[in-house]
Design a protein around this nucleic acid. Structure first.
Lengths: 178, 178
DNA sequence: GTAGTGTTACTCGGATAAATATTGTCCGAGTGACATCGG
DNA sequence: CCGATGTCACTCGGACAATATTTATCCGAGTAACACTAC
């Protein structure tokens, strides 16, 4: 019963990416620097989030990551499952059948009660995570955390986010930062 | 997010030990044989259950393990925590403080919202496990599972359980088995 | 001045190694049962 | 026949490897920006 250390980083990265405007992106190296983790290792987890459809990655200069969908539609469960895997934590190995007494297979049609109880508990865990949207995490952070921390976070985002190349028929964003 | 394989064995062992009468014990080797797992490795988990006050161990010949308290007072949560450790699965490393912007410690008096959400989910998980008593597991098994499986389990228990030496002022149990 | 083109620097992505936790195995300390011996 | 005693077999308990998983790192493929050149 131990969650990988990358889950925490993944959630923090997603929360920070929720603060970038529009289609702008943020490089993985900047995210790694923001939290003091290994850049190369963080990319692995960000890659899993991308494969799960939570993030989008843009290659090349001015590339990076951004949310693939609005933060209201991303839950903590999505992130945890993407990083830790979708299979349940408790896997019934059917050890009740592995003893010396080999009964007929028809004696084991009923599912293992222990397995059922463990999976029910895990469903409760996942349900609790599914109720927390990324937008709620960000809103709570902005309203509850120390204003200095919020200001530092916003400054970091503004400093490192890279606006995307605009297509000719689109109006370029205001050249506010750098 | 992966539970050790020993958890399943530990729960099954506890359920089987709930079937031994009174103060009788069952050797760890018999439990290992019942589920087809390594005897030496199972002892490690049984030892953890003993350290947690769930089981009692009796050394010497006719020794073994038995429940340390009635099965109504043992929950799945007790067993899972004893085997997997009591600390929560999600450990907040406070990576929000590890970035390049070093704010004053007073900016982090509020707990991390992400950590709060993860711990709340884990509390739901543990609450669900705490509601399942070992006696309920056994009762469900006896009433729901295939009668052949129940009979085989009872026979196994009767075959391998070792009655304890009775003190002089106590009446010896019926010499039914072996 | 403008369009085309080549270079370049920056990004992600996957393959590769080190560290750690889990799983599995072994041997030793301790204890009560059993057989033996003596009364 | 009953009791004391020494031996012994059986138990758990912790120390010792092997394996799997997690963590960390490096190098390559790809892409868009940038500078340069030609028109």
């Amino acid at each position: 019963m131990k969650l990988g250390e990358g889950v925490e980083a993944a959630i923090h990265c997603a929360a920070m990416l929720a603060g970038v405007d529009g289609a702008a992106t943020m490089p993985g190296a900047a995210l790694a620097e923001a939290f003091g983790v290994s850049p190369s290792y963080l990319l692995k987890h960000l890659n899993m989030l991308t494969a799960a459809g939570i993030l989008e990655s843009v290659p090349g200069p001015a590339g990076g990551y951004r949310l693939a969908k609005p933060s209201e539609r991303i839950t903590l469960l999505d992130i945890v499952l993407a990083v830790e895997g979708r299979e349940p934590a408790f896997r019934c190995g059917e050890i009740r059948q592995r003893g010396p007494v080999r009964l007929d297979a028809s004696a084991y049609v009923k599912p293992c009660g222990i397995n059922a109880a463990m999976l029910k508990a895990e469903r409760a865990y996942r349900a609790a995570l599914a109720e927390v949207r990324l937008s709620a995490i960000v809103a709570d952070y902005v309203s509850e955390a120390d204003p200095r921390s919020v200001a530092a976070g916003c400054a970091f985002v503004a400093r490192y986010q890279r606006p995307q190349k605009v297509h000719p028929n689109q109006v370029p964003p205001s050249k506010s930062e750098r």
